[in-house]
Design a protein around this nucleic acid. Sequence first.
DNA 1: TATACTGTGTATATGAATATATACAGTATA
DNA 2: TATACTGTATATATTCATATACACAGTATA
Lengths: 148, 148
Amino acid sequence: MWIPIQLNEQSAEPLYHQIEVQLRALIVSGQLPEGTLLPSIRELAQQTKCSVITIRRVYQDLENEGLLRTRQGTGTFVAQVDGQQRDNQRRSAVMTAIETAAEAGLRVHYTDDELIGMLREALLRMRPAAGEAEHGSGQGEGGRQHDG
Amino acid sequence: MWIPIQLNEQSAEPLYHQIEVQLRALIVSGQLPEGTLLPSIRELAQQTKCSVITIRRVYQDLENEGLLRTRQGTGTFVAQVDGQQRDNQRRSAVMTAIETAAEAGLRVHYTDDELIGMLREALLRMRPAAGEAEHGSGQGEGGRQHDG
DNA sequence: TATACTGTGTATATGAATATATACAGTATA
DNA sequence: TATACTGTATATATTCATATACACAGTATA
């Protein structure tokens, strides 16, 4: 049992948070369907080379958000949430970040069009040649600092 | 000597960081021109009701970024940076936030158009009626006076 | 020089965030 | 029941962020 989690050891962003963000996205985007049995905390701890307690925290946090359901002795599953609610979570995760960006933009007096242009640029850069033959160049994504 | 800094005591965002973000924006957007003498650290500390050391840290951080210049015994000034470089800083402050948002969006499989739409929404919400009845540049209620 | 401003350096308190080991408890099944 | 898995609870180490007091040093000027 394996799920795609990529940790950046360099980043100042704490492990538990990196894992949470990625796992949350997998669930909320439907890539991990309802009822899916996740790896055990020990298994995922081994995969990610961090402690069991850290993974436990991740599972616990996501359970508190209603995304997971755990049964002691059995395992941890993707919870069933109604589509409406899941959409909300999916949306709000992104909207929060967008609002932060918009705020930053307004503060330094960028126009709406300029900001939208910058978003277009960023997307183009991060989603290289979607439709072309790209293969290979590992676009320098990655290490950002923690958000404020 | 007074500069418009608004602190949110409730926020989890630390004081020094709130001040830095706002002061950086004032400089980088040109609202505080080159050569402007800032309030002394003691004065700004009083205005913001936080300690001198905290303000000192702010000034020091911004000096390390090249935005300020301090002369012991005299005061702290807005540094002269060539327009190119200042534009870069203005831009990168926003771009970083935009990239974070884009990353979040891609993770949950939003399309570019959806993300752009969300940004439009956010801007509309945060910059209400910018072509309607309101005249004036709308920014910052609470008075911007500026005498020297 | 005396005074009253500037910024600077050192040393420190405090609390939260991060991560951990280890022992405990529930569940499934041969 | 014995075993081998699950998750859980407690207690703790460590580091970093935040904020501070207070003595020190440079500058301007009456």
